[in-house]
Write a protein that binds this DNA or RNA. Sequence first.
RNA 1: GCCGGAUUAGCUCAGCUGGUAGAGCAACUGAUUUGUAAUCAGUAGGUCGUUGGUUCGAUUCCGACAUCCGGCACCA
Length: 638
Amino acid sequence: MITIRFPDGSHREFPKGITGWEIAKNLSTSLAKEAVAVRVDEDLWDLTRPIEKDVAFEVIKRPSEHGLDILRHDAAHVFAEAVKELYPETQITIGPSIQDGFYYDLYREESFTPEDLNRIEERMHEIVNRDEHLTREVWDRNEAIKYFKDLGEIFKAEIISDLPEDSEITIYRQGNFVDLCKGPHLPSTGKLGHAFKLMKLAGAYWRGDSKNPMLQRVYGTAWFSEKDLQDHLTRLEEAEKRDHRKLGKEMDLFHMQEEAQGSVFWHPKGWTLYRLLQNYIRDKISAQDYVEVNTPQLLDSSFWKASGHWDKFRENMFVVEDVDKTLALKPMNCPCHVQIFRQGIKSYRDLPLRMAEFGSCTRNEPSGALHGLTRVRSMVQDDAHIFCREDQIEEETRKFCILLLNVYRELGFEELTVKFSDRPAVRAGEDAIWDKAEACLEAGARASGLSYTLNPGEGAFYGPKLEFILKDAIGRDWQCGTLQLDFVLPERLDASYIAEDGQKHRPVMLHRAILGSLERFIAIFIEHYAGKFPLWAAPIQAVVATITQEADAYAQKVCEKLKAAGLRVELDIRNEKINYKVRELSLQKVPYILVVGKREAEEGTVALRKLGGEAQEVLDLNKVLGKLLQEALPPHKR
RNA sequence: GCCGGAUUAGCUCAGCUGGUAGAGCAACUGAUUUGUAAUCAGUAGGUCGUUGGUUCGAUUCCGACAUCCGGCACCA
């Protein structure tokens, strides 16, 4: 007999060699039905694997995170089996479970086509129907390598060769298909069910390295129920509907064209939004005693050599050849800010000096990285550099964290995660400085009340950093804000201040941004609100729409009055039915439609219709004005 | 940059196996004067991304290039 200990602290005796599934069944039939695997001590095991000694035991149930992982991993195996049946010349490599599904990387001379995907998917359903048993086998390392080599599975053989010497080589067999796998798996392919779908075809480098051969990656999604699958597909559709590239076109905010790859043509409405956000940030930072500057975009290569960018960042810089010199467009503002700092002599009394710039930066991003507004070659950050003494780092960090949190809240983002990245393996500066820097940054973050997770070794070479990640309305994460400590640049560009001791000292530089790039943040802002901006940020806040020409003069008056009060209002006196206007303006996501007909003209009222609302309110014109003005106040002025 | 896919009217998209293109919306003109998500009719609008090739003939087949889309790599 062996003793099985359960998560609730209780324990029971079972015969040696009993399987997880038998224990689950013994506890309750409903539990056995829900079981996908079991946790035995620290490891996840198959339900059918015999347990030979006393262990801590837990049943992994379907709805759990691990449960879905196992299901998706099964789906990957079924996928690979289908591929090998249909296209035996294909080599299979790895097929892990990922968020929402799985992928499998394959090697085959010929490219797979979308039609191939359909065929594979059909075959997968057949394999599920065959209900093949999945059995776990432990193989000898060299035999396993030989087996896969003989099969022509060079990549698999390489994976096994690279496994640590002492690791157990486990193989899962289903029907005629054999795959290297740590497990666990469901007992048979039938348990996978049919709630899966192959989604897309893509390229991926072998072992994620661009020097290696390119494999073909197939992405799939898999769920426990048809309903979960449908819900997932619906979520994808929702995300597509609010895609900023689509809304940007529909709402006439901006466009891009091939002669200006990676740069944005901002249309009047989009530029209004841009300026509103920029001015909002201006207000917020000037209230925190930042000063705003503006610096050159085109600087001589000698400057970039001094700053270190010529060595470290040249690949990403646009270099301009003039007759007798070589210049480059600035990819970052920081070296320029140091130049302003260096003008005249700075005293310790000048610190902290918070220098902000909405500077236009240009980076030669790889063509394949470009993506709408989220990855562009020409962009403006809400950038600033804080020059301070070492003993001011903690307080500056705390202040920045509080400001950033406040900005995100005011802009409608409630959820925030923070990552603290500490020293990387390759770095500048002595360990003693890093010790101090990391301690200060952490202390500042903690003082602001933020909780953060550690991102070991991911700091910049010049200092540790905090990364701020916000969650949008449909649950996607976006890294926007950042705070980076820098000991290197002040040294390289010889920035100094005179301290109380009358000696020159190096200031520390804090690189920080809240929104990140304005372009990218606007993309996130558009998608977060699905184009339905809060009134203060809406490029057009209201449209006065007439029902008949008889109301034109009055409509004009209403429009002028609201404009004079500072609202962004337009007039729609086109010869169209009100239904048509309401539909069109609603599709344009205009927050308020002020409908006026003969009645309103006579009574001095307007019928106010809020975007998405069913009903309208007939209100006195002055009341409407007051209501809109109140709602149109930016969040920090309420 | 790499792999795959796409590129047809201002927009969204049809166009089977080669015979120089079509719809809806938008635009324009006219009629209609309208009460909360599309009033009706008419007109005009395209070197079918660019460029080579195959062919009697290419939007269609093949190649190159450009851009976009989905990934990968990159994101100091």
